[in-house]
Write a protein that binds this DNA or RNA. Sequence first.
DNA 1: TACATCGGTTGCGAAATCAAACTAACTCGG
DNA 2: CCGAGTTAGTTTGATTTCGCAACCGATGTA
Lengths: 161, 161
Amino acid sequence: MRLEDLPGRPCSVAAALNLIGEKWSLLAVREIAFGNKRFDAIARNTGAPRDRLAARLRALEAAGVITRRRYSEHPPRYEYELTEAGRELRGVLTALRAWGDKWAIDAPPPTAFEHGCGHDLDPVMTCRHCGEEIDPDDLRVRVTATGWTRQGPLPRADPAR
Amino acid sequence: MRLEDLPGRPCSVAAALNLIGEKWSLLAVREIAFGNKRFDAIARNTGAPRDRLAARLRALEAAGVITRRRYSEHPPRYEYELTEAGRELRGVLTALRAWGDKWAIDAPPPTAFEHGCGHDLDPVMTCRHCGEEIDPDDLRVRVTATGWTRQGPLPRADPAR
DNA sequence: TACATCGGTTGCGAAATCAAACTAACTCGG
DNA sequence: CCGAGTTAGTTTGATTTCGCAACCGATGTA
């Protein structure tokens, strides 16, 4: 993706959404990550219309997020797998799931994961360098294409309101 | 959001995407997180069509992600701010940006952040309990609504391919 | 023979999206 | 006072995408 081809601020978030931001794309990735490799299972578990799903799977393949492998000739049958890029998308899914658990549903989380350490997964974003939990209020913009964002600290939560 | 109202697997990821998965929504949140509170700035920096942006901002407000505050009567003028839910979305943006930096663009990251510890931000998702980096291959599905996913380990990366 | 499975494609109407123009109420400079 | 600019949208009309249902062909199963 060429950043210049995106409207607005040159930004990896926009570039990422260009690849995986269409409706059903991330849910398809979720299903494949769950081990559901086949078209029918992905369609059933996401609820996506079959024609839209077919289009999304092609786009995800073109984006390098999944591969399509024929496991039968006559009739041709395919299964989908995550590429390295697709596998790394699971982190995005984890962040989204954590947010959704907290803010998008009123019931307890419908899906939980057990981490290798034996406890239920409770993900935290940390700084690889210092190991501390990342407080987004504690970040400064360091580099951007000129003209798009002034350098300096990001706005903080305003405790007055 | 009632999970029963979603098509497919009951899932917080789907519920989250229902709130913030439409086109331009996350980019609008990104801009507000950057401190751009006004309609025109958000429109300019995202590249979103103004009518779409107006619709998205209303939807984000209804979803509880942003607030709309009048800063002028006559003419009525508004500015947008993140709610607590919106501020916690910054973690999703961080995950998405990290993925996009690596997989969605060919150039070096257009935006970097400096963490409080003095180094460039390099986010890692860790387990709150044991502090270890989360390897998505090291997760087992612990609970889901019955019928949707067998319990047990998730498929691993297949080293044979 | 009849039906089910699988991985789609096709056709079609409904809905969402887009760029551009327009509105309305102000402010500022001269 | 005049004209230009700012701000936050709304309107318009064309384009694109979406969602649904039906269909298809090759095979396997009862």
